[in-house]
Amino acid sequence: MKKSDWILAVVILAAAVLIFLVQAARDSEGEKEVTVTVDGEIFGTYSLSEDQTIKINGTNRFVIENGTVKMDWADCPDQICVNHREISRDGESIICLPNHVVLAVEGGKSADLDGIVR
């Protein structure tokens, strides 16, 4: 491997760690909810603190349990969203591309402010 190969690898890894740190800093402890979007339009918003199972237009079904969201059924052939791990952090999402369905976790009211400047 040439020296510039190593530099390239390290730069990309550093960028990844940086983005990850920004995401971790943005994650909030407050009340969270999951927003369901179909074709870019909001289908519904559900609180993560309430265990429930919700069907989306007969194409997908997801479960909220112990503050995490998991897609447990989809009618698409690839099943990528079903194999997706459960999500719970602010900004995380499960996407079913064939059905254009997006489940996205968002920090609740306490996370509306990015920061406070005094």
């Binding site: 890894l13 979007t37 999402s93 996407i95 997006v102």
Partner: peptide, 19 residues
């Protein structure tokens, strides 16, 4: 396709796995 920017959340993981 899904018209949301949230897809980008896993960019760090994808960068590392790409490397």
């Amino acid at each position: 396709v899904v018209e949301t920017y949230q897809v980008g959340y896993y960019l760090p993981v994808l960068l590392i796995s790409g490397v």
